[in-house]
Design a protein around this nucleic acid. Sequence first.
DNA 1: GTTAATGCAAACGGTTTGCAGGGGT
DNA 2: ACCCCTGCAAACCGTTTGCATTAAC
Lengths: 150, 150
Amino acid sequence: MTNAGLNNQNLEHIRRICEDAGIKLTHQRLEIFKELMTAQDHPSAEDIHRRLQKKMPTVAIDTVYRTLATFDELGIARKLHLANNRNLFDTNLAPHHHFICDHCRKVDDIYWPDFDRTTLPAEISGIGRVRSRHLELHGLCTACLEQSGE
Amino acid sequence: MTNAGLNNQNLEHIRRICEDAGIKLTHQRLEIFKELMTAQDHPSAEDIHRRLQKKMPTVAIDTVYRTLATFDELGIARKLHLANNRNLFDTNLAPHHHFICDHCRKVDDIYWPDFDRTTLPAEISGIGRVRSRHLELHGLCTACLEQSGE
DNA sequence: GTTAATGCAAACGGTTTGCAGGGGT
DNA sequence: ACCCCTGCAAACCGTTTGCATTAAC
């Protein structure tokens, strides 16, 4: 989730990317790309597959998995491994973290540059070299807070 | 991972817990408890099952899953949902986070009270109420750093 | 003797794989 | 025409469930 919708620039974008990578721009890849770029949330492979049913009733779930893996490798989207065992996809390539509603499972992007810059605890140097920080804030989103009394 | 090994106090401890909870102290529960308490790492259910094979060759994997879920509910151990889709168990009940080696997959406990106390970014108030912070530091542990030519 | 817990087997959900046939270059 | 990509089906892995048997109280 991130993008301001699909436009011709995106279409030219994916065409270029496929060309550069030496892979074919198939109907399935194009539609999955469009679905990703217009998604307003963090969809799973199965979400994408379900949403494509209307346009492409014959697309197979394994094609969706393969295509999303390809997009992840090409840097178009990023596969999120969240701690609740859900693999979601994110087109927001900027550094950010996530807020996860434990009730409705909605995932929101969180920006916290101050935290990203914070010095790590000294003990970590004895354990290894840190390459990335994965932060999830868990709680209840405003909608679920209101709904569940109060 | 946390404990200083198994002793009679632990045995009396699990007996009390089962009694208080109104559940039976079975041979399986006792052995799984001992395995957890002596573990020097963060074992998965399948790790526990494998390690028990010597002592209890007939113990079933589903019993291990059920028992670990029970221990999680009783507060003896905590089920960790890590972002690499592995469900591990931790007997360290103190607030802490984890360092995960992306090469050998070792998991180390990290204490970072300064971070735990840090004020969240202002934008979060518009998204929901945070109840917990899940932090994973990813990288390479010292052993893997040396080994891989550093 | 009751009742809860175990072992077995089978199902589960999400994901991946081998393969033959179809579509893009 | 070539070969990559797709769809199908089946396997996969970790986990869960229903059920009859077993063992703790």
